[in-house]
């Protein structure tokens, strides 16, 4: 319970908060996953219940599962690729720490997005700019929390942190490439075995 309350401390005092989560045992194993799941659910709510005036999704084409997975994958991928990069570049953060920073940073985004979804049902076109501003603000906050949190857990300066984030993007691309390669190889292998067994069973 104490750890759950500590999330809000991280939101408002990221340097201090993320230091404590790493070194003073205020971090948690399950809260990050809960936040990430919440983010996925909020993304689905966003598609379904955002007010008609600013909802440009093709609702009849919408799939909750697809929305959920695609919205959370990017953060999992970021955590993984950032970890692969920073372990090579003297980063002190463990995968758990990075994942925690990433997901805790999403808290203001989730919060603001819920507000936007609620208010968007009561606005007209001219007022939509306010909601866009709220959304933009939440992402700026996210960015600030991410950068300060990563600086803290890796014990980096700002410049080095930004460089590693850039390299992270490249690493993410490589990971995706390898994944695609792996999946297509597995597919071919499975195809080979199935035809092999088919042929085999027909010969007997």
């Amino acid at each position: 319970m104490n750890k759950l309350k500590y999330v809000s401390h991280c939101v408002f005092h990221p340097f201090d908060g993320f230091y404590e989560t790493k070194h003073r045992g205020m971090g948690s194993r399950w809260i990050p996953w809960a936040i990430l799941a919440l983010y996925g659910i909020v993304s689905c709510i966003d598609v379904q219940y955002k007010g008609f005036v600013i909802n440009f999704y093709h609702v009849s084409n919408m799939s909750s599962v697809r929305t959920f997975i695609s919205s959370i994958t990017i953060f999992l991928l970021f955590a993984l690729s950032n970890w692969t990069v920073t372990t090579l570049m003297d980063g002190k953060g463990k995968l758990n720490d990075i994942f925690l920073v990433t997901t805790y940073s999403l808290v203001p985004v989730i919060f603001c997005r819920l507000i936007v979804i609620f208010l968007s049902n009561y606005i007209i076109r001219e007022e939509a700019a306010i909601l866009y501003a709220v959304t933009a603000f939440s992402w700026v906050w996210f960015g600030f929390m991410m950068i300060s949190g990563l600086c803290t857990v890796h014990e980096y300066g700002l410049a080095k942190n930004l460089v590693t984030i850039l390299i992270t993007a490249v690493a993410a691309a490589i990971i995706i490439f390898l994944l695609v390669l792996f999946i297509s190889l597995i597919e071919q292998m499975l195809g080979f075995f199935t035809t092999f067994f088919k042929e085999f069973s027909r010969r007997i």
Binding site: F52, V53, I54, Y122, I124, R125
Partner: peptide
């Protein structure tokens, strides 16, 4: 307007409704 997917005019109608 919702059926016709016209957000511009929906917004105008909603302004009146609100």
């Amino acid at each position: 307007f919702k059926l016709g997917n016209s957000r511009l005019y929906y917004s105008k109608a909603y302004k009146g409704y609100r």
